[in-house]
Nucleic acid binder design. Structure first.
Lengths: 223, 223
DNA sequence: ATTCAAAAGATTGTAAACAATCAAAGAGAA
DNA sequence: TTCTCTTTGATTGTTTACAATCTTTTGAAT
């Protein structure tokens, strides 16, 4: 679960390594030797081991006993499983948000989208997810769901893996305009207190996102 | 994520401690000092620290920096969040199983229930979940979903926490007969290849389970 | 040239000692 | 008595050293 604790040394090391993995500075499959990292961060192997375990929990690093850690390589099967779980958790979050959100909360969600609209229209195929806009939207819904477990699973396990996936298949383009439109419909359902509809729209939204990504990953194998 | 690795020492320590926590031999809130555990297992503090981190990832142990680990105390809010996530993941699993399961797989699922029926009828209020029968049913659906991430989340994070919850609120009784009947309807939907129906029935099944548990936890506060 | 085996090198797993932080006990004053 | 400050004790965080395992290299035999 990784509640939070984690000796302060390991914590900052985790953050740094996560950024380097997600940004592609550390390539997929690359070995993460404990001694090498210990020297790099001017620290002993203890905190390094703890940091690597934590990254493995987040799904960014893979282990082999007596062999060590490597930057995880995401297969297309991993990606499919990831999107299926994401659909389950986010549609549940949308459902709960529609049940529990106050009028004020819902209004805040809609305002967020109104502010994002001009930005998205300026970059129709922008990396919506990575840019923060998409993250904001889903983060707000996560908060409105009032379920800390869902929020933790999404932000500490699924989203990092999604970013890693994007990093490893670089030619993925966002669906900026379409996604924004789908967001608007979801926000509307939440603000009107319709859990079933909100959940269904969110599920469809994520399925569309996966369809788009899957197509790009497939064509990647050809070219 | 805790792929598997984990030095062999830590692995067995994790298993032992998990059993002791779930069985109630270690009470909730009890301190888990590193030195004490190191002596108990005749091992140094290194593997102990790794084991405790792993248990924290499973949600059985809570941390405070510079203070240490304790057996996690599950609040009613934790329980609610847990059941909401469980509903999301298991209904997704049922949905996927209905989409993907072969006729043979589905038949196997129904056979499982037929075999369990006489056992459940003999103990109508038995601890279905803990006894293995319920676990078997959900495990099979998990496998039929063909999604390793769902399976891992359920068996390494959610189910252990559910068992801990049961341990801390001891007067919970199962819904043996009703649950079995609901299982039969779910299995039927899966075998007939109806994802929407299977998902909906599973969601309802888990909601009923939660309603029953919530009522018992509430009455616990009174008596 | 290829394949297998054995030894050398490198890396992870574990143990033991040191440093830093926190919690509790005790003394003193209001 | 109660509150606060200080000190003491205990526990976690970190480092260093040792043991076990794996990977790679080297060599010979086919």
């Amino acid at each position: 679960m990784t509640i939070s604790g984690h000796g302060s040394a390991a914590k900052s090391i985790v953050d740094e390594l996560r950024n380097e993995i997600i940004s592609g500075h550390l390539q997929s499959g690359e070995r993460l030797g404990e001694m090498a990292l210990a020297e790099r961060f001017s620290v002993s192997r203890g905190p390094i081991r703890e940091a690597l375990r934590s990254l493995a929990d987040a799904g960014l690093v893979s282990f082999a006993p007596n062999v060590g850690a490597r930057v995880r390589r995401m297969t297309i099967e991993d990606a499919r499983a990831l999107y299926e779980v994401r659909a389950a958790l986010e549609s549940e979050a949308a459902r709960l948000a529609a049940s529990r959100a106050s009028k004020d909360d819902a209004r805040q969600l809609i305002d967020l989208l109104v502010n994002q609209e001009p930005v998205v229209r300026a970059h129709p195929h922008g990396a919506y997810l990575q840019g923060g806009g998409d993250t904001d939207f889903h983060a707000v819904i996560s908060r409105l769901s009032d379920n800390r477990l869902i929020t933790r699973l999404l932000f500490e396990e699924l989203y990092p893996q999604l970013l890693l996936l994007r990093q490893q298949h670089q030619n993925v383009r966002g669906r900026g305009v379409e996604a924004l439109h789908e967001h608007e419909r979801i926000a509307e359902a939440i603000s009107q207190g319709e859990p079933e509809l909100a959940g269904m729209l969110m599920r469809r939204h994520i399925r569309e996102s996966w369809t788009s990504l899957e197509r790009q990953m497939a064509s990647e194998g050809e070219g």
